[in-house]
Design a binder for these strands. Sequence first.
DNA 1: GTCCTTATTAACTGAATGTTCAATTTAAAT
DNA 2: ATTTAAATTGAACATTCAGTTAATAAGGAC
Lengths: 203, 203
Amino acid sequence: MASRKNAELRKPEILKNFYETIVEQGIEGASIGRIAKRMNIHPSLIMHYFSTKENMIIELVDYIINKYWLLLKNIQVGHADPHARLHELMDVLWGDEWYRATDISADFSVIAISFHNSEVSKRLKHLYSGFKRYLSDEFKSFMDAGIISVQDPVHTAEIIMSMLEGYRHFNNFFVDNARAEQYRQDMKRSALTLLQHGLDDHA
Amino acid sequence: MASRKNAELRKPEILKNFYETIVEQGIEGASIGRIAKRMNIHPSLIMHYFSTKENMIIELVDYIINKYWLLLKNIQVGHADPHARLHELMDVLWGDEWYRATDISADFSVIAISFHNSEVSKRLKHLYSGFKRYLSDEFKSFMDAGIISVQDPVHTAEIIMSMLEGYRHFNNFFVDNARAEQYRQDMKRSALTLLQHGLDDHA
DNA sequence: GTCCTTATTAACTGAATGTTCAATTTAAAT
DNA sequence: ATTTAAATTGAACATTCAGTTAATAAGGAC
């Protein structure tokens, strides 16, 4: 019999294995039976804790999203000097810790699920809107300090988030490990260029 | 019995229904049985044409990717004048036809599959590299004409593609239909700003 | 050591999974 | 009208699916 653990330990352990199974086999390969086999426990034990697979998916999404919230809360960019603060923020956003916080393969699976699961969709929207609020607040303060020249902090946040997501996306397809660092720098500098030159009028 | 059609008609029809089932139920809900039911045909007929589900997935990916190739080949930006040509290209990339060419929900499913299916991954990489080549060739000609100021056309293509992908991604989460057009314009203008200001040195 | 909660397994279900192979229908060619 | 090839169905296959219910095992409180 598997070593006895309490719910507080076992549930996250199951979620972690669910997560890893999705990374390795996709959502279509992440059945309860396979997760149980990978953990050397009985499938019924998983049902005991989550009742339905739908529940387990929701809790998995919460588990992943929580990783992002922790990232956000731990940014706490140190510098008070706006210029240094701006650069530190950019370093964090395009940094390694941020990129590796979650497995991009699982991220895509979750996003794919969100298109036909409204609970998942709701949670993703909430996460994104929190991220957007955080960024736009920062950009607002940079505007006030006069070190970036953009017109609308919210629109700016959307643009930077889009670039960040595009970066995550393509890092898997372009790279050519030797080019990874180059690509990262290109994206980061492009973001800074945009922040400092604003949106010109190309009418 | 379902009306008799030949392979040339039936196979694409099956792929189309596979595609739509993925959009509605995700890859995990797109079983052969469900696809057959939706088409009012017998599941065996699907096996007859594709032999295995794995084959069917590969052919679906080819089917989707072909839509993108058609887009690329039909761009054929008309203007010879470089300045008009640049703007027309940007209009196409951020245009409605481009955005709606495939269902983003299916795109995400395919990308998610690519992480644990090397055949799918290979095909996506090939598509992206073709797109990158097309864009970098265009950017090279704009550089020669002196209407954009970037240093490397390939890096530039990667950046623009990342922005485009980020745009596709977030259009589903930000919008607020009233803002959709605004967001699109913001992204397009940002891309133009980058092309014209290049990557500044923020050392 | 007994009680009591809870973790874990055992045994099972009915439905759905992808797949196989033979039988049947259809339409075109001769 | 007969032949022929292809399209379509039918019935079965072992396996896996998520889920149910009851039994067992383990550990903490007293």
